[in-house]
């Protein structure tokens, strides 16, 4: 507990030494991971559901597999875009 308190006081001391730009960079760096992690949840579920349904469709109608596959890739591309925008936000927070 005392270790935590001393760490906290150290952080406060460090934070007082930061210029505003540095403080912003630090905040960005520590929130970048959260940004990408949160952005990946929804598309993760979405792509899983999408591919599962596509596999089911292909198993039921193997002769339509080509059509289903193309549509599946399109759906993945649109769903994945959300996660990728999260990744871009990560890059922006971390490095910009």
């Amino acid at each position: 507990m005392s270790a935590l308190a001393s760490t906290a006081s150290q952080v406060i001391e460090l934070a007082q030494e930061f210029t505003p730009a540095e403080a912003k960079a630090n905040a960005g760096a520590s929130s970048a991971g959260f940004a990408y992690g949160l952005a990946a949840i929804g598309p993760g579920i979405g792509i899983g559901y999408l591919v599962g349904q596509a596999v089911q469709a292909m198993a039921r109608q193997p002769e339509a597999a080509g059509q289903v596959q193309t549509t599946m890739f399109l759906g993945i591309a649109f769903t994945e875009a959300l996660a990728l925008i999260g990744f871009v936000v990560f890059i922006l927070l971390k490095f910009a």
Binding site: V11, L14, A25, N26, A29, S30, I91, F95, A96
Partner: peptide, 21 residues
């Protein structure tokens, strides 16, 4: 935690270009 913050504080001195643009 302090180590991380120190590393982050020691980051690039000059302002990095935006990697998106």
């Amino acid at each position: 935690m302090s180590l991380l913050l120190i590393i982050a504080a020691e980051g690039p001195a000059k302002e990095a270009d935006n990697p998106i643009l």
